[in-house]
Design a protein around this nucleic acid. Structure first.
Lengths: 211, 211
DNA sequence: TTGAAAATCATACAATTGCGGTATTGTCGG
DNA sequence: CCGACAATACCGCAATTGTATGATTTTCAA
């Protein structure tokens, strides 16, 4: 017989915590040995008591669920963290992933979907609620026509802009490229005109694609 | 009665294309009005003939599937693109998402999973094969210990650094914060010492975490 | 309450940078 | 061959920025 997937739950609202625990513990192949009301309690207990999966509410009193994941993931990288939240705000999703969350689902998901997601998570997947997944995929998309301003630069100008972006001064770039500082200044001036900017930082921001 | 989800298929291998078309066309609620052997053929036809979903092979002769998506997504942003591939190499996944793909699944997925994924895609989700989803989620994770240098800055210093990063000059920042320019310069000097840098660009690079 | 840290402002000087004009050389396509 | 353009280089001026020294006020925790 294969062993159960052990699931810890971090959730401050009593009724939700209870029903989640009952759902998980009652299902075949799952067990819920422990639950927590606060992030702090989870951080105290979990690093010394192994579980496979942690269901983490985001909106907790005191430390929030995202910071809790950040701490726990650093201490227990093998644990799988599933964020459970009511809402699908933009930024929290990405903050959670940066903190080390492996999955992000909405609480309105039906129970059988939740169990399915836990299984998938435990098997190395990263189940996401569909609207969340769309947000994440969309965050990579770079629309058409992003290469109109930079490709009017000559190779030499790009070379110089690249070195500027690394924090080098006019003089340093001149030495690196074995040309006169005034030449570099001229190039930079041309770059500014082509990119319609008036300082190094603005040029570098455009070069590195930040608005 | 609700209308079928219309699915186009781009796939050069005859047997695979046929079996996909039969699978989709035979399923209830789906129809496959058209298939293509090459990216070029799809780009010719699709912009003037609406479909809901496009199954796109990546490994095509001539133009590859990713560049094909890039073109089509720019012309038909409402179409949903599902990449279908044999392998789960690192970079192609992210290139596909950047190009505008909304879903990425492995060909070894069972037929019923494929139909399920098409439905989810059409309903606004972004279904990913589990190993792919894990790759994507993991790409956001920033390991522990990223906040050693920046958190020695005071809130005011961070505020100023943030505005510098947007390309504002000393004087502009002073006006925005209603303080004297010399105060801003003092803050900036303190920032430089804490971060061990000697120019705006270097400071901003550290602030935005690009080495 | 007392001391440390943070935020504020001033003055000064040197270096870097932004902006303008001009000029020479080489390369490439029509 | 000629014109367009890229790359090179110089001079000069004004503004911004980097560095240093010093001082006052506010805030907050020990």
């Amino acid at each position: 017989m294969k062993t159960d997937i052990t699931v810890a739950i971090v959730e401050d609202k009593e009724p939700i915590r209870q029903s989640l625990a009952i759902l998980v513990d009652g299902a075949d192949g799952f067990s819920c040995p422990v639950t927590f009301e606060t992030a702090e309690a989870a951080i105290d207990y979990l690093p010394s008591h192994c579980v496979d999966v942690v269901l983490m509410d985001i909106d907790l009193p005191g430390m929030n669920g995202i910071d809790c994941v950040r701490h726990l993931k650093a201490l227990c990288p093998w644990m799988q963290f599933m964020m459970c939240t009511m809402y699908d705000e933009d930024e929290t999703v990405f903050d959670a992933l940066k903190a080390g969350a492996n999955s992000y689902i909405l609480k309105r998901s039906p129970p059988h979907k939740l169990l399915e997601a836990i299984t998938e998570l435990h098997e190395g997947g990263s189940p996401m609620s569909s609207t969340i997944a769309r947000k994440i995929a969309g965050s990579f998309y770079v629309g058409p026509m992003v290469t109109t301003e930079l490709d009017i630069l000559t190779p030499r100008e790009r070379e110089i802009l690249d070195r500027l972006s690394k924090g080098h001064s006019h003089k340093e770039v001149a030495n690196e490229l074995f040309v006169s500082p005034t030449t570099v200044r001229k190039h930079i001036f041309n770059i500014y005109q082509k990119l319609q900017v008036h300082s190094k930082i603005e040029a570098v921001n455009k070069y590195l694609g930040r608005k």
